[in-house]
Amino acid sequence: MGQMTNALRGDGISLSFGGIKVLKGLDVEFRAGEITGLIGPNGAGKTSLFNCLTGAYSPQQGTISYAGQPLNGLPPAARASKGIVRSFQHVALCPDLTVRENVMMGIARNFKAGWLSAFFPLPCGRQERAEMIRAADTALNDLGLSDVGDKFPSELPPGMQRLVEIARAVVGKPSVLMLDEPAAGLNNSETRDLTTVLRRLASSDLVMVVVEHDMDLVMSICDRIYVLNFGEFVAVGSPEDVRRNPDVIRIYLGSDDDE
């Protein structure tokens, strides 16, 4: 029951751009304690759904809630304060900040030292920075990135940049972690490392949603998978169910008629 309560839900979500319906009345439930996959071909509407759930887009119809609390109308920053965080399809690290500082931004919303401490070395500002550094170093250490805290993102390979993004997302101990194509651009070895990291992050009170094209990664880490095509779900279930689903096979492999 607890798992059901701490779920991110979307009921009847519809989104259109101009006259084009991108999402067609979708019902979703992402449960705590599970890693949920969201897959589908390019243009299926995965990132649009993601953006609706995180507040970047406002769906024309439908309700979104977390743990029973409605989220409709809340901007991304307000959703972040409720512990709903995300990573981005294209790495969105700040090139002016070091890796450690980028990760610190993931927990910045929890601190409140005033503007005076931003300009002058007051104890509250120093303490705030020390606590943020401590939290960021712990997150970096957990993801095996303890050696790169002082580097700038541009000095890291793409795989590590992805991990830094994940570190930034998890440093604030989120209740909902949404990862948008975390394996994009990674080589096999980096994807294996990512798989290990995501498994380690999973916990009973965390809702984790992964949008991904890498089927091996999705099948190996997800407890449940939603398959999206042309703005509609064509399958929902365990990796085994989805793998056997004829519609999914047709979408990904093409039907015999196509040959």
């Binding site: 972040a80 981005f88 690290l93």
Partner: peptide, 26 residues
């Protein structure tokens, strides 16, 4: 000093990646 502060770092993130800054509370 601003460069080292939470506010300064948030401004830099908002400058380069406004959507990411939004997603983390700025």
């Amino acid at each position: 000093r601003l460069r080292l502060s939470r506010q300064g770092m948030a401004l830099l993130l908002a400058k380069t990646h406004p959507a990411a800054a939004d997603a983390f509370g700025t």
